Amino acid sequence: MALGHRARAVIGSIAAAAALGALLTGCSTSSDEPAEAAEQAVEVDPALRAMLPGELLAESTRITVGTESGYPPFEYTNEAGRIVGFEIDLFDAASDRLGLKYTFHDMLFDSLLGELYASNVDVIAAAMSDTAERQADYDFVDYYNDSDAIMVPAGNPEGIKNLKDLCGRTVAVLTGSTQEEALAGLNAAECQDKPVEVVQFDTDADALAHVQEGKADAELTQWSTGAYNAKQVGSGDIFEVANTEIINPTPLGFVFLKGDVELVRAYQAAVQSIIDDGTYAEILKKHDLSAGAIEKATINNQPQG
């Protein structure tokens, strides 16, 4: 099967999924399982479904979705072993609007773009920031606005308030993230005399644990994830977000391979549809994320005509 200009992997073959090998770190879940999403039913819109590539219109077709399930509140694994979260609910609602089934593959964040480029997955749903650099090879359907959080131990013993305060300190970060890039830029611009010692981790949880163990002064992560962890880890008295000013605001989006025009436009229209009918606001409220709401679903952060 082909989507756009590349051959695509569809979950008709378990052997194809197994080729990901050690990169697969968790379970798979599909949209035809009982949804833990918004209570409002999301019905198929025939006009939007008709926007899908023809090869995806067969009832038996599933696309594959790459994710990294250690990033609450966007994606995480519940006690039943199911991947849940804000982005999961949102992708589920958009897919239901299109009448399109899918299966998740849980893998390391740093491997996601490579697996998409190799056509081992059809789309990424992993709270990924839409940046100009990534747009060179990928297209984004933006669904949320977020920024960065500096996570520190409760009480902020080092008095860290902003990015410049990280100069000369050890900072943990998720490998392959825009936060890692931000720290590299900080070293080049502000911290040349006292560079940040950047320690990379495969998961956000491991990066945060490095702070808890006293091996790093701070972690740089996305604001929504940092705020969630500050409230949820322990009794809410282990970590706090140090910065009060907005750092590195950027949209987040579902990620597609460059050239999958029909699939991108279909998901953009589906996300806009659930914004317009109130489903989006309901999902945001469920996850306490209304502060980052958007009014228009964009492609590559550009208004749609």
Rank of each mutant, 00 (worst) to 15 (best):
A136G: 00
L20M: 15
G66K: 04
N229L: 14
V42G: 06
M1G: 13
R8N: 11
C167V: 01
V264L: 07
A15C: 03
I83E: 04
T61Y: 00
L90Q: 01
E75M: 13
Y280M: 08
A37W: 10
D89P: 07
S95R: 04
A154P: 01
Y102F: 15
C191G: 12
L56R: 01
V65A: 05
T103E: 09
D130L: 03
S273P: 02
E39T: 14
V261E: 15
L20D: 08
E181R: 12
L52A: 11
A35T: 03
E133Y: 02
A132T: 08
T67I: 10
S31M: 09
T64N: 10
A293T: 04
V171T: 12
E68H: 14
P34L: 11
A297H: 02
G114L: 10
A293F: 08
E55N: 09
M107C: 05
V264G: 05
S147R: 06
L174G: 06
A270I: 04
V255M: 00
E115P: 01
E75W: 11
H105W: 13
V233N: 09
A281N: 13
V171S: 05
D110G: 14
D130T: 13
V65K: 00
P251L: 00
D202L: 13
A47W: 03
Q302H: 11
L3A: 00
G236F: 05
T244A: 08
N120T: 05
V173C: 01
S30R: 07
L56H: 00
F109H: 15
H287T: 03
T131F: 00
D96E: 11
N301G: 08
K194R: 12
L112E: 06
F91V: 10
G185S: 08
S28P: 09
G278V: 06
Y143K: 03
A281E: 13
L23M: 09
L113S: 08
E180F: 11
G81P: 01
G214Q: 06
A16R: 15
E158T: 11
G253P: 04
R8P: 05
S60T: 13
G214V: 04
W223V: 03
R6Y: 15
I238S: 07
R82E: 13
A132V: 05
A93Q: 06
P195S: 09
A17W: 07
K258I: 07
T175W: 01
D148I: 00
H210A: 14
I11N: 15
P249S: 09
